[in-house]
């Protein structure tokens, strides 16, 4: 167990939790991120495999996930369908698309600098975590210093009031889902680089983990309350604890029980702290 590994292993979950916390702050939820990770993995690896440039492949991956993010966002904000249902729809659709595109087989490409993204360290910090940190800082700036940031909280606590103030609620809601999709694509690209192949099931289960990380980090399910920074921290902590269970010699069945206990305990702690007081942001 060392810090380098913890950071490396938690990068994907951390960035997904970051995106998820933004969505949850607007009183939404995004179940599609896990499947999007898989889809992006397949798209990027597929393009790399057909000898397209690395940047083009990365860009296409981001574009794919952004498309589905916008798609969910538009349906949620314009047609006013519950986010849970819409993203459940996009979740199963994209999961299926990932499998269809690769035919159930993993995709690969000839080694190039894309592979090394996951291998390099920057002053002892994994490059992947550096990338995640950059996004983290950007999101913190967004939350604290832009009107968009305040609107995210505003949509979560009182959407109607915000709309009456003349804020383009629909636009900002769509943007939040777009961001979540983008973050999913970043996670997907990072994982693809890590496993040096495109895998149609690599993102399975990440959506629930991201939601759990965000919730344990204090993001309220009804929106408007919580700080993405804690979601980020709790993602790192959860990864460390769950990985640690296996390395401490617990067998898989006991690991399952342990994860259950960690989740409940984390949420319990969170509840105790919430009673004391919750930070505004």
């Amino acid at each position: 167990m060392n810090l380098k590994n913890i950071l490396l292993h938690s990068s994907a979950l951390a960035i997904l939790a970051l995106g998820m916390s933004l969505v949850m702050l607007t009183n939404g939820i995004d179940l599609s991120v896990g499947s999007l990770v898989s889809l992006v993995s397949i798209v990027t690896a597929g393009l790399l495999g057909s000898k397209f440039g690395v940047l083009f492949a990365i860009f296409s991956g981001i574009l794919t996930a952004s498309f589905f993010g916008i798609f969910s966002g538009i349906i949620i904000s314009r047609i006013k369908l519950p986010p849970f249902i819409v993203t459940l729809g996009t979740m199963v659709i994209t999961a299926s698309l990932a499998l269809v595109l690769c035919g159930g087989e993993t995709l690969y490409w000839e080694k190039n600098w894309f592979n090394t993204i996951a291998l390099k360290y920057f002053f002892g910090v994994p490059i992947l975590f550096c990338i995640v940190s950059i996004f983290f800082i950007l999101i913190m700036l967004l939350i604290h210093y832009t009107s968009f940031g305040s609107y995210i909280y505003g949509i979560g606590s009182n959407e109607e009031a915000l709309r009456l103030c003349g804020v383009k609620v629909k636009l900002y809601k769509t943007l939040v889902y777009l961001l979540s999709g983008c973050f999913a694509s970043v996670a997907g690209i990072m994982l693809t680089s890590r496993i040096a192949s495109g895998n149609p099931i690599i993102g399975m289960g990440y959506e629930f983990e991201a939601i759990a990380a965000a919730a344990i980090g204090g993001i309220s399910f009804i929106g408007g309350k919580g700080n993405p920074a804690f979601a980020f921290l709790s993602a790192v902590t959860i990864t460390m604890l769950t990985n640690g269970l296996g390395l401490m010699g617990f067998t898989t069945p006991w690991q399952y029980c342990g994860i259950g206990a960690i989740l409940v305990f984390g949420m319990f702690l969170n509840r105790i702290l919430a009673k004391v007081s919750l930070p505004e942001r």
């Binding site: 629930f208 759990a212 399910f221 029980c257 994860i259 259950g260 206990a261 989740l263 409940v264 509840r271």
Partner: peptide
């Protein structure tokens, strides 16, 4: 304990 249903039942799933 006021743990959101989503997290409670997710934890119970593992347990």
């Amino acid at each position: 304990v006021k743990i959101p249903p989503f997290i409670t039942t997710f934890a119970m799933m593992y347990f």
